[in-house]
Amino acid sequence: MTVKNKKILILVFLAGCVLLGYWLWLSLRPAEVVAVHDNGNHSYVLVRSFPLTDKGKINWWLKNKDILKNNYEVPKPDTDGFFTVVFWNFGDSYKEKGKYDRLCFEDMKSPRNCIDKDKVFTVRFGRNMGLSFTTNNKIYRMKENGQIVKDESD
């Protein structure tokens, strides 16, 4: 192996280590709840540093659902027990309406009461569907025994 090939191999290895380190840093930092907004039985939770994987998001919900209930009264089921909790990536701050695809909150004064739509996770409960989790267009359901399975119908 020539010296030039060794240098390239070392550079590729170092780049891989940097990428792996960055991914580990992203996946290990704690999620932060920035704010909560309500619209009937729908709750919108604005988060930073939310888990990246489907399993991480579901596990985060299971671990933190009682904290969300106690600190933010989330979820807020309707009279039939149905609820929806949508987790949105907060970004750096609230924004003005101006842009096309923004979600604005009526419980705040304008003009800075909107966020860019960057949904990261949804939790729903309904009588027929039970508890379900939606991540990146994949749906997972919790069975009566607590087992979580991917919905294969989508």
Rank of each mutant, 00 (worst) to 15 (best):
V149R: 04
K4F: 08
N128D: 15
W25Q: 06
P77C: 09
K138T: 14
R112W: 12
Q147F: 05
R48Y: 02
C17H: 02
Y100Q: 07
R102L: 05
K109E: 15
K119Y: 11
F82Y: 09
P51H: 02
M1Y: 08
M142W: 05
L24A: 11
G91Q: 05
K76E: 06
K7N: 00
D154G: 12
L19C: 08
D101F: 14
T135R: 01
I8P: 01
K63W: 01
T135L: 09
F82K: 03
R124N: 15
A15E: 02
K55M: 08
V36R: 10
D38Y: 15
K65Y: 00
T122M: 14
V36W: 13
L26R: 14
P111W: 05
M108N: 09
I67T: 10
F105M: 07
P77E: 03
K109R: 07
S132T: 15
E106N: 14
Y94R: 00
V120I: 14
K63S: 06
N137A: 14
L26A: 08
D92T: 13
K117A: 06
N137M: 11
R141D: 09
G91P: 14
S93I: 04
K99S: 11
K95Y: 08
V149P: 07
V34H: 04
D92M: 01
K143C: 00
W60V: 05
L20W: 06
Y140K: 07
K6C: 01
G91A: 03
V123H: 00
D116G: 09
H42L: 09
A35G: 05
M142Q: 15
K109N: 15
G16L: 11
N113M: 08
K57L: 08
R48N: 13
D54L: 03
K150S: 13
V45F: 12
Y44L: 03
L26Q: 15
T135W: 15
K65W: 02
S27A: 09
N89P: 00
N70C: 02
V149L: 13
K55A: 15
M108E: 10
E73F: 09
V3M: 07
